[in-house]
C-alpha cells in the first residue's frame, strides 16, 4: 500500500473512532433516561408532589423535600450572586496583575474542583458550629454558596473579559468614571455570560446531597420550612434515602424523584441556553 493510502485509512479509522466515542456517551445517557422514565414515569401524579414522607412507598411524596430544594436554591443564589460577581469585577478590573493576583486566580480555579463533601465539612465547622446556625436552611445555603462561588467567579470573569475593549475605551472617552463604565457598559454586556455561569453553578447545587447531609439536612421532615432558620430536606437526600430501602416500591419512588430532579436541572439549563443565545444575538 502506498504511503498516502495508509494515511487515508488512518484518517478514516480515526473519524469512525470519533463518531463511536461521541455516541457511546449519548447512548449511555439515553439508556439511563429511558430506564428511569420506564421505572418512574408511571409514579408521577399530583399526590406525589403534595405528599409527606411515609413508610408506604405509594403514599410517600416529595412535597417537603422539593420545597426544601427551592428554598436552598433561592437562598444560595441570594448569597452567592453578589459576592461572586463583585469578586470577579475586582479581579478583572481592579486587581493589579502580579504574583498575588496570580496566586488568587490559581486558587479560585482549584477551588472549583474540590469535592463537595469537603465544603460540607468546612460548612459544618464554620456555619453550623462556630456561627451557631446548627442544621438549618441558612447553614446549608451558606455551604452551597461556598461550593458554587468559584464557578460563578470563573464564569463571570470570562464573561467580563469577552466584553470588547473598544466599548470600554469609548465609555472612558465620553468621560465616564471607572464605576460608571463597569456598571453601565461592562456588566450589561457580560450579563448573558454571567447568567449562564450562575445557572449552571446552581444546577450543580441542586443535585448535591453529600455536603448538605453533613451540615444537617434531614431525611424525614413532615413540614415545609417557613423561614431560613428551619430544618429541611432536599430532593437528592430523599432520592438517596428511597433508593437504599429494601422495598421495591421505594425504588420506583426514587426513579420518579430522579425524573423531577432531572426536569428541574434541565429547565435551569434551558434558561441558561436561552440567555446565552440571546446574548450572542445581541453582540453580533
Amino acid at each position: 500500500m502506498t504511503n498516502s493510502g495508509r494515511n487515508r485509512l488512518i484518517d478514516r479509522a480515526f473519524s469512525v473512532w470519533g463518531v463511536v466515542s461521541t455516541f457511546i456517551g449519548i447512548a449511555l445517557l439515553l439508556m439511563f433516561i429511558g430506564i428511569i422514565l420506564y421505572d418512574g414515569l408511571g409514579r408521577i401524579n399530583w399526590a406525589f408532589f403534595t405528599s409527606l414522607p411515609s413508610r408506604f412507598p405509594e403514599k410517600a411524596g416529595i412535597y417537603t423535600s422539593m420545597v426544601g430544594t427551592l428554598w436552598i436554591v433561592v437562598l444560595t443564589l441570594i448569597l452567592s450572586l453578589p459576592l461572586g460577581i463583585s469578586a470577579a469585577i475586582y479581579l478583572e478590573e481592579y486587581a493589579k496583575k502580579g504574583r498575588f493576583s496570580n496566586i488568587l486566580e490559581i486558587n479560585i480555579s482549584n477551588l472549583a474542583g474540590v469535592p463537595s463533601i469537603i465544603y460540607g465539612l468546612l460548612g459544618l465547622q464554620i456555619f453550623s458550629r462556630t456561627m451557631g446556625l446548627g442544621g438549618n436552611l441558612l447553614a446549608g445555603a451558606f455551604t452551597l454558596a461556598l461550593l458554587v462561588l468559584p464557578i460563578i467567579i470563573v464564569a463571570t470573569r470570562e464573561a467580563i473579559r469577552a466584553v470588547p475593549g473598544s466599548i470600554k475605551d469609548a465609555s472612558y472617552a465620553l468621560g465616564a468614571t471607572k464605576w460608571q463604565t463597569i456598571w453601565l457598559q461592562v456588566l450589561p454586556g457580560a450579563s448573558g455570560g454571567i447568567m449562564t455561569g450562575v445557572i449552571l453553578a446552581l444546577s450543580r447545587a441542586v443535585g448535591e446531597a453529600a455536603p448538605l447531609i453533613v451540615v444537617g439536612a434531614l431525611a424525614y421532615v413532615p413540614f415545609v420550612p417557613a423561614s431560613p432558620m428551619d430544618q429541611y430536606s432536599v430532593l437528592p437526600i430523599q432520592i438517596f434515602n428511597w433508593i437504599s430501602r429494601p422495598q421495591a416500591g421505594f425504588s420506583t419512588n426514587a426513579a420518579a424523584g430522579i425524573l423531577i430532579l432531572l426536569a428541574i436541572t434541565l429547565a435551569m439549563n434551558l434558561v441558561a441556553v436561552y440567555y446565552r443565545s440571546r446574548y450572542q444575538r445581541k453582540s453580533n
Binding site: 442544621g135 444537617g216 439536612a217 424525614y220 430544618q231 437526600i237
Partner: peptide, 13 residues
C-alpha cells in the same frame, strides 16, 4: 403525626 400534628418531628440519617 396523625394523632399529634402539632409536634414537629425531624429525622436525619
Amino acid at each position: 403525626r396523625a394523632e399529634f400534628p402539632d409536634v414537629k418531628i425531624t429525622i436525619g440519617i
